[in-house]
Design a protein around this nucleic acid. Sequence first.
RNA 1: GCUCGCAUAGCUCAGGAGGUAGAGCACUUCAUUGGUAAUGAAGAGGUCUCCGGUUCAACUCCGGAUGUGAGCACCA
Length: 648
Amino acid sequence: MLTVTLPDGSNREYPQPVSVAEIAASIGPGLAKAALAGRVNDVLVDTSHVVDGDARVAIVTDRDSYGLEVLRHSCAHLMAQAVRRLFPEAQVTIGPVIDDGFYYDFAYSRPFTPEDLAAIEQTMTEIVKEDLGVERKLLERDEAVALFRDMGEHYKVEIIESIPSDEPLSFYQQGEFIDLCRGPHVPSTGKFKAFKLTSVAGAYWRGDSSREMLQRIYGTAWPNAKELRLHLQRIEEAEKRDHRKLGRQLDLFHFQEEAPGMVFWHPKGWTIYQVIRSYMKKVQDEHGYLEINTPQLIDFSLWEKSGHAAKFSEEMFTVESDNRHYALKPMNCPGKVQVFKQGVKSYRDLPMRLAEFGSCHRYEPSGSMHGLMRVRNFVQDDGHIFCTQEQIQSEVAEFMELLFRVYRDFGFDDVLLRLSTRPEKRVGSDELWDRAEDALRQALDATGREWELVPGEGAFYGPKIEYSLRDCMGRLQQCGTMQVDFFMAERLGAHYVDEDNSRKHPVMLHRAALGSFERFIGVLIEHYAGALPVWLAPVQAVVMNITDKQAEYCQKVEESLKSKGFRVASDLRNEKIGLKIREHTMQKTPWLLVVGDREADSGSVSVRKRGGEDLGKMTFDAFCDHLGEEVAQFGRSGSDGALRQTAT
RNA sequence: GCUCGCAUAGCUCAGGAGGUAGAGCACUUCAUUGGUAAUGAAGAGGUCUCCGGUUCAACUCCGGAUGUGAGCACCA
């Protein structure tokens, strides 16, 4: 007799060992049909798995995230089977689940075409109709190697051979197709209701750029056609928000061939840039930063001293001039150290917080560039804090206060925190690392927020915290960073005089909240779909006349608003009001002010919001107050702009 | 950097057996002075990314370069 405890807390008794499928059937025929896998004592298993003792058992269906994952993983196998049927020469490699879908990498003599994808999808549908049972098998190592070698699956052989010998090797067979896999998998190929192959691209074998390139086919699978359709709609929505597209439509910036990876900012885009820059300047001032500026072009010898030449010389732009060898700065820190080094610094001067909006150039690999998100020339809200080891924790805490305030003002409340600790190759003593990691850990704990540990991913010169924003499409965007550096000050000969009159090297904290302005603006554009909160909008309001008669009054309104510090334009073209409203709506201007005789005569404006809401006639002063309040609340959620946008 | 695509008017995109090209929007001009997402008419606008090759003839076919897109790799 064994007792099975179901998720709702109820117990069921079985006289003898029983499979997950049988448990599902004993609960109900509907559940038996829907069962894709099981969870026995929190371990995911196949429905064929036999429970032979008391256990907690949950039936996994496509209505929970585990079920979806199993479904997608099995769909990758389904695709591999179809590929093998159509292209017997193709070798299978790996096929994992990813966010919203799956992929499978194949080795084949030629790239797959979109027509191939359609054919593969068709064959998948046929295999679903065949409703083949999926069976789990355990094979001995030698047996498995021989089997796959005979099938010509050399990549699989390599994978099998790389699995530690004490681990069991499980395989899944459906019809003629067998694949090495941990599982679990759906019980039969008839379980798939909605899937689609989305794209094909190259991918390196084992993620190693020195090895051969395989063909990766991406796909997605859902419990039903409706959810698949919704998923495809979400992708379409994301494409509409593409900052490269909106950048052109809203006339914010452009790129051109002669300056790959570098931005030509147009008046409206540059307005956004400057608003953000002066906002950050103000926040940093309030947090005790001193802004400096250092040269963009510095003799290569400094980069040799700093260690950048050794590690990153390939990624640096260099200039030969006047018989000298210069490099465009890829980072601001060596320049900052030169400023710190001027004059003798005392421990009383620490912590010293220096900020620089320095323009940096990095030769990014051509394939990595992506609109504003990855560029070769950018400016960060870059700050470096020179401090003692004892001050690390309080400085990190102080920075996080700044950071969360800034993110909130931009409308981001969901922030992922990650601590990267010591890598194998590193400088500094273990004791030093212990202290720095503890300081970061304590500062993280003090926020009361959750954070993740990423062991071994720190920089060679110190541990770091990375801050990622979740945008309204649910995507993570890494923006902020806090890096402890024990190394640079010493390398560049910076020191201070301590209490006991000894000379010591300060610790440097490299930190940024927004990261690069370019990238951050890209994130903002996509998060808000171009409809930026009023405080960031390049044009906050447009005044438009109905006929020429009100032109003078419009200009008066425009001037008055400008004199109060608002960014306003008037549209006095000889066009119908409908056209003007349409065009400025498409430009996502937050406020449209319509002026006809009625308004001009009464000293008022008719107010229309970006979303189309008509607030009717109000006095000029009332509108000013309204606009002023809206600007003052930034993009904090709860404010109008962010709310409406995240709702879409 | 790697694999595979793509590159035609300011923008979005058509096009052809290899015989120097088209639409919509934008732009210019004229008419129109109108109340909350497109007033009408006319006009102008192109070395079809660049460099080679094949050909009587290349925007079209072939090769290369550059840029760009998806993915991979990279990201101090």
